[in-house]
Design a protein around this nucleic acid. Structure first.
Lengths: 157, 157
DNA sequence: CACCAACCTGACGTTTACGTAAGAAACCGG
DNA sequence: CCGGTTTCTTACGTAAACGTCAGGTTGGTG
């Protein structure tokens, strides 16, 4: 199952090394290794699972995942542990997709996993919405403050 | 200048102690003391500056300031050091107001400080706006994801 | 093939943001 | 004045999230 992909993508050469990835996403190699260490990122090493000692290799897809992760982290202000939980949902979706494309999905199970994924996404959206509302409120307050200062300045001149 | 306030507020009895304040804002006494320790909060102790050993006393105003601070911290995801910088702007505004109400503002200086305060508020607003935009974008992406899952589910039935 | 930068694997160090514990002093109700 | 709670100061402890250093390996280049 590794020699033929039956009319899929032409294997986009996973040529990025950890230093490059770090620069691309604006972090450090150490951080990436750390994330891998705590199980936040899946161990990568090219197509296969990498044998100890070899350089880690990443595909564009991996870079994108990492970017997403970092964004979630800073935007939601969650700990790496919580972030891990959030990402595991994504992983589940990924696993599902694999199961999906690779043949027999298992009718009932398919529905179940979809429902679950939907629930988690909903949950994430709720979190985001709440945070956005709080930010908006704070923004309004700041704008009011800004207005007051402006009026004072106008009265000055 | 302490016995008469010339027709000001009737001194709203600053009766809150640290434990009460902590509960009100949803944190712990230790945290409040720590914030004070690193110079993030001004030392309070009633009307005067408190002599060592006495219990700290806070007014409603202080509680409000602390709430603001905590909100800024979690919403902007800044470090306490950065938060301190943000709050020092507020302090400057407070100092200005004191100068203002207590008599001779100093015409030119007034303008200068106002301009500066305005600049800082603008800066904070920019920060918030940027963050809100990022959150909005992430939210859109998640919503798209949600849609995709929903469609899959619909195709199922 | 020789080289040198980039990477690897431990392992220990560091910073931030508090938690926790101890002994003493302050506050409040009776 | 007295006892029980709350707070004070000081100091050490800690979890999270990496930074940094050492000694060895890998991998692309001339």
């Amino acid at each position: 199952m590794s020699t033929s992909e039956l009319a899929a993508a032409p294997a986009p050469v996973p040529g990025l090394r950890i230093g490059q990835v770090a620069k691309l996403v604006g972090t450090t190699p150490r951080t990436i290794r750390y994330y891998e260490e705590i199980g936040l990122l899946v161990r990568r090493g090219g197509t296969a699972e990498r044998e100890a000692g070899r350089h880690r290799l990443y595909a564009e897809e991996d870079v994108q995942r990492l970017r997403e992760a970092l964004r979630l982290k800073t935007l939601l202000g969650v700990s790496l542990e919580e972030l891990k939980a959030l990402l595991e949902v994504e992983e589940a979706r990924g696993a599902l997709r694999d199961e999906w494309h690779h043949g027999n999905p298992g009718a009932g199970r398919r529905h179940e996993i979809l429902e679950q994924a939907l629930g988690h996404v909903d949950q994430q959206l709720e979190l985001l919405a709440r945070r956005r509302a709080e930010i908006a409120r704070l923004e309004r307050e700041l704008r009011a403050k800004q207005e007051r200062i402006r009026k004072r300045l106008a009265q000055e001149a």
